[in-house]
């Protein structure tokens, strides 16, 4: 997408969490700026605790930046709403509702469509995530991977402009994870929605991303922007993971990550014993 105006514009965002008596104030994000295009799939990668979740939550309006601004589709982000959909790592589908009712819940507060359309939309996303035959199941009777698909479908049913996903597959086994990655790519291709996806997993990042932002240890700054799409254009399948381009890119990203993790260890051990 070569739109002139970016879909999401993050400019000069910094975040400092006020401390209390036990913990001093924490400088989490330092002057981060980025543009995200319409329908672009962006992955945040960085060492643990560096501030990826915090930055994503600022884009989603769930956290306010200490400094800097976020614009979404030309409008200033001031708080959460249904245009910024969230998927968390923890299972957030509601146990008192069935799979279908959970997805339908995503449309509950929409005013742009009527009840018949809400049911249609919910059916559509139910099928899109491949849970049609489980529609009447309560969500604690289905597997973790299915629960995450329910969460994704529910978020999509709300009709968001952007999907914010915080390690949504973090708790899943490798096979389920891979399966959901492929499914997510399909969904984002069909839906043409911008996605910000936070992960620890380098392979996952390279496989999913149009562009990866690698962050430094706290306070997070962008250390490198990896334009994955330029190296691996076109549709991705599991075979993509076997290609040489993928292999090289993954190694490169891994090395950058390794350097950051090392840097963090040196910060975290100020009176280092061996270092």
């Amino acid at each position: 997408m070569s739109d002139t105006a970016p879909f999401v514009r993050v400019s000069g965002v910094s975040k400092i969490f006020d401390g209390d008596r036990a913990h001093g104030s924490i400088h989490v994000i330092d002057n981060v700026s980025m543009d995200i295009g319409t329908g672009e799939f962006v992955v945040y990668l960085g060492p643990s605790g560096c501030g990826k979740t915090t930055l994503m939550r600022i884009v989603g309006g769930l956290e306010t930046a200490t400094d800097g601004i976020v614009d979404l589709a030309g409008e200033r982000v001031t708080g959460p709403d249904r245009h910024k959909g969230m998927v968390f790592q923890a299972y957030t589908s509601f146990p008192w509702l069935t799979v279908y009712e959970n997805i339908l819940f995503g449309t509950k507060y929409r005013t742009d469509i009527n009840d018949t359309e809400k049911a249609e939309v919910s059916r559509h996303y139910l099928d899109l995530v491949g849970l049609g035959e489980f529609s009447e199941f309560f969500v604690n009777r289905i597997s973790g991977g299915m629960r995450q698909r329910v969460a994704i479908a529910r978020t999509l049913a709300a009709g968001p402009d952007i999907l914010l996903m915080d390690e949504p597959f973090g708790a899943l086994d490798a096979q389920t994870r891979e399966f959901l990655q492929v499914q997510l790519l399909e969904i984002s291709r069909i839906e043409k929605k911008a996605v910000i996806f936070v992960t620890h997993d380098v392979e996952e990042a390279v496989f999913l991303a149009d562009r990866i932002f690698i962050f430094s240890a706290r306070p997070a700054t962008i250390v490198e922007e990896v334009p994955v799409k330029d190296t691996i254009p076109g549709r991705r399948t599991l075979e993509t993971k076997e290609t040489e381009e993928f292999f090289h890119l993954r190694n490169h990203v891994r090395n950058v990550m390794l350097a950051q993790t090392k840097a963090m260890e040196m910060i975290d051990v100020p009176t280092g014993d061996a270092e």
Binding site: G60, P80, D81, K84, M86, W96, Y109, R110, T155, A158
Partner: peptide, 25 residues
């Protein structure tokens, strides 16, 4: 869970709706 509340917000619910439809349930 705090996530339930935040899900409510990102689905477009107001606090009163979150209370009724999510917290209470």
């Amino acid at each position: 869970p705090r996530e339930y509340i935040e899900i409510g917000y990102t689905l477009g619910a107001r606090p009163s709706q979150i209370t009724k439809d999510i917290v209470f349930r």
